[in-house]
């Protein structure tokens, strides 16, 4: 498989894809809530459900977390290839 190293918003992952978190964009006010649920740079996440609109479901550190699409747009990740 081709390795894609581009930085993309978490919201662009499709279900089943894994990625590494790189950074949060303009999320000062919710960064604390994200980190306490397990979202930190360099952690691996897996997209569990993403319908292209509405909220999405992510597995981070073994916890299933529902995120609004706006929030998922501001979390920058790097896709992991198989």
């Amino acid at each position: 498989m081709v390795t894609r190293t581009s930085q993309i918003p978490l919201a662009e992952l499709v279900a089943g894809e894994q990625a590494t978190i790189l950074s949060f964009q303009n999320m000062r006010e919710v960064a604390g809530r994200l980190t306490s649920l397990g979202f930190t740079p360099s952690v691996r996440v897996m997209m569990m459900q993403n319908q292209g609109r509405g909220p999405l479901l992510v597995n981070v550190r073994g916890t299933h977390v529902a995120l609004g699409r706006r929030e998922a747009q501001k979390i920058i990740v790097q896709r992991m290839s198989e």
Binding site: M27, E29, V30, R33, L34, L37, P55, L57, T63, H64, V65, A66, L67, G68, R70, E71
Partner: peptide
């Protein structure tokens, strides 16, 4: 004004 939607989905 919208609050962020971040919620744990418990087992």
């Amino acid at each position: 004004q919208r609050s962020a939607f971040i919620m744990e989905m418990p087992l």
